[in-house]
Each structure stands twice: as C-alpha cells, then as structure tokens.
Design a protein around this nucleic acid. Sequence first.
DNA 1: ATGGCTTCATAGTGAAGA
Length: 256
Amino acid sequence: MSLKIASWNVNSLRVRLPHLLTWLTQQQPDMVALQELKMEDKDFPIAEISQAGYHAVFNGQKTYNGVALLSKQPLEKIEKAFPDFMDEQRRVLAANLADVRIINLYVPNGASVGSDKYEYKLRWLKQLRDYLKAQLLLYPKLIVLGDFNIAPEDRDVHDSKAWQGNVLVSEPERIALRDVIADGFIDSFRLFEQGIGHYTWWDYRLNAFKRDLGLRIDHILISHALQSSCTACYIDKTPRTWERPSDHAPILAQFN
DNA sequence: ATGGCTTCATAGTGAAGA
C-alpha cells in the first residue's frame, strides 16, 4: 500500500480554490494539509472538494489562519487544538488516516524578533513540543506537517547572511524546532536532498520567485517508525509559476 | 529604502503576512 501526502499554505482558500482543484487533479495525493484558509467553516467549499474526490475536515477562522485536511479516505479522531492552551487562533488540525496520525500545523509567523507576536510564537512552539511528545506515545506512526515559519538551517535560506537573526531564522526559533525534532522526528526532505537552493516560500515582492530568493519553511516531519517506508520528499514549484499564485509551494512525501 | 506585494477588510494614518 502506497501513500502520497502533501502540505500547502494556500494563502486564502477562496482565492486559490481553482489552483487547488487543478493541482489535486494533476497530483492525486491521498491526503493534503492546507494552511491559511482565511475563511470561516461555514464558507468552506465542501461541494467542490467533494466533487474532486476528497473528504475534508477543517478548522477555520475569519480573515486569518485556518487549517484543513483533505483525504481520499475518511479521517478519524479529529483534534483542533493543543490541550490546556487557550488560543483563539486556528492553527492546529490532527486526524488519523488508517494507522497513521497526521498533525497539520500553521505555526505563528512571529512578525519580528522581540515583538509580542514573536513571544507568542515561542510559547506556541513550547506547547507544540509537549503536545507532540504525548502524541508520539499514543501514535508511533506520526506525520507532522505544515507551514512551520522556520528555516531550520542556513542552507535553507537564499542569503543567510542577510537573514541572520531575523524572524524565521533566529536561533530561539531554530532551537525550538530542533528540540521538537530531537524528541523523535526526522525532517523527511533532508532524507533525500542535502544541497542548498530548495525553498517552499518566496516573497511576493522584489520579483523574489523569478530570482529564486526563497526560504524552506514548510516541512514534513515523520516519526522514526515511518523512516524506512518513506520513499520520497520533494517540493512542487509548479503552482508558484501560475497566475495569481500562493506565495508558498506545496511539499509532498511518499510512503510504501 | 521599515519600502517592495497580496489578501481581507473597510473606505484609514489600514493590518498582517514572511
């Protein structure tokens, strides 16, 4: 049995629905984690997604944030927040797909180092670590994917000197991500590719995509129990070339 | 150069994203 999964920050599902439907038809993933829906649950395009052949669960919010999981097979044991962490912002969506636990994340952006939003990002990442430790005990086969808003290392940044100390690359953020990974995960992309120049996000401004000025901030983490069955992880830059694109490209992983 | 581009919101001196 093979499994093809993906993560994509669509930056408004309302605007990007045509892109998503085209992409689903072309790629036929078994499961997709979406971030930044920017819509309430009542506006979720259930009919279109269903027409494309996918079940959907979603955790939406007006204007900001919002996450969804689309799957060809039904999803079970849905969870929409970290336990014991009061948060208005809809950034978490977990579900079981057969014997694999999937956790979809939209990690806070952090605005700028030292800001209130940055402190919130670090608090949120601490909650994430506690949550994932507990989830690993319940579900050894665990996939944690989404927009992490952290470039793990300098090789994940087009100009690490210019970005040094900035939000998305600052040391406290990187340490928080390293701590999460050290508790029992692998960055699946780095199982297959060690080089520089692989990005999932390019700023809308300054012609950043054409100049390939990007960051690798969207990730698919897998628990150790899944490592031997993971056969690929790659970024699909094609939708970033389309008219009126999301600023993020999808990242995919395959398992046998 | 605190800009630049896009989205959602409102009709702002805009806010937020990354």
